[in-house]
Amino acid sequence: MSGNSLRRFPGTGLMAVFFFAFLYLPVAVLIALSFNENRSATIWTGFTIDWYFRIFENRDIVAAAINSVIVATAATIFSTLIATIAALGMARDRFPGQAAVSSTIALPLIVPEIITAVATLIFFVGIGLSLGLGTVILAHVVFCIPFAYLPIRARLEGMDRRLADAAADLYADEWQTFRRVTLPLLWPGILSGALLAFITSLDDFVITFFVSGPGASTLPLYIFSSIRIGISPEINAISSVMLVVSILFVSLSFLIGRRG
């Protein structure tokens, strides 16, 4: 049927090639220029990997990377914990307003991120909370909950509920059933959601830009502030590293989530 569709609409394949080239060719160029030995990012003079070593010698990049890891780790732990509790609660017997609760959990995926960022900033200012690394963590926890929730919820939907009933027939209480039956089966979904939450927090720029304060710069903020004065192979190198890390985490999340 797909072949008939392509024959029915000539040029579809060419448009698909143009679309993916427009989307990914700049990324490929960025990675290639990160190996450029010239200080100018746009003039190729030779191959080198020195820029990848220099990013570890740059104190500002190292400090931003540490902040990013701290924020992403804290956001992952708390958002995954909340998402797991929410998924377990939603998987139990249906209750009035369940659809509304489910929609509310997924709301950050639908609402434009800029609106979430502005609303979060207004909330923090309204309650008198000083902007810093703590506010970034709080904002990221809320933003990452649906990313952790969806794989966990999908895993619960695919579980055989008769296993829990069998555990109850063997005189296991709710805690024993959760620890010995539900949690081992749910663990791939939890890990998959945690990986998605981590990389979402690590790569986030918009929310971090609005709710961060002095000393709370993360890697995306550092890259944004650096490109204002020009793009260098050093920026291309750190961007390439973040790209590889993102692909790795998303791939691991996908593979772990598919485990039977």
Rank of each mutant, 00 (worst) to 15 (best):
A99W: 07
I66S: 11
G128I: 02
T104W: 14
A83L: 05
S68C: 09
V71P: 01
A117N: 07
I66L: 13
I77A: 13
F124I: 04
G128F: 08
A86T: 04
D93Y: 14
G89I: 01
T73D: 03
T76A: 05
V125E: 11
F123V: 01
M90Q: 12
A72G: 07
V69F: 12
F123H: 01
A117G: 12
D93E: 14
V69I: 11
R92T: 05
F95T: 07
P112N: 05
I110T: 09
A117P: 05
A86D: 02
S102G: 13
A91V: 00
I115T: 12
I85S: 06
F123A: 06
D93C: 11
G126T: 02
V71Q: 02
A75W: 00
P96A: 15
R94W: 03
P108M: 07
Q98T: 07
V111L: 11
L121R: 06
L109I: 11
V101P: 00
A87D: 03
D93V: 10
T120M: 13
A75G: 01
T73G: 05
A117E: 08
D93H: 15
P112R: 03
T76P: 00
D93L: 15
P108V: 02
A119I: 04
L121K: 03
I122D: 14
I66W: 12
I114R: 09
G89Q: 07
I114D: 13
S79Y: 07
I105E: 03
I105N: 02
S79C: 11
L121I: 03
A91S: 14
I122F: 15
I127A: 09
V71E: 01
I82L: 15
L109G: 10
T116K: 13
L121M: 13
S103W: 10
T104A: 15
L129F: 12
P96V: 07
F123E: 00
P112K: 03
I122V: 13
A83R: 04
I82K: 08
I115F: 14
T73C: 09
A106Q: 14
T116H: 12
I105L: 09
A83C: 07
T116P: 06
F78K: 04
I77W: 01
L121N: 05
A86C: 08
I85T: 05
S68T: 12
L107S: 05
I70A: 08
D93K: 15
I70H: 05
L121Q: 03
S79H: 11
E113A: 08
A91C: 05
I85A: 14
I127W: 07
G97F: 02
T120A: 08
V125A: 14
T73M: 06
P96Q: 13
F78W: 08
F123L: 11
I77V: 14
Q98F: 08
I70V: 13
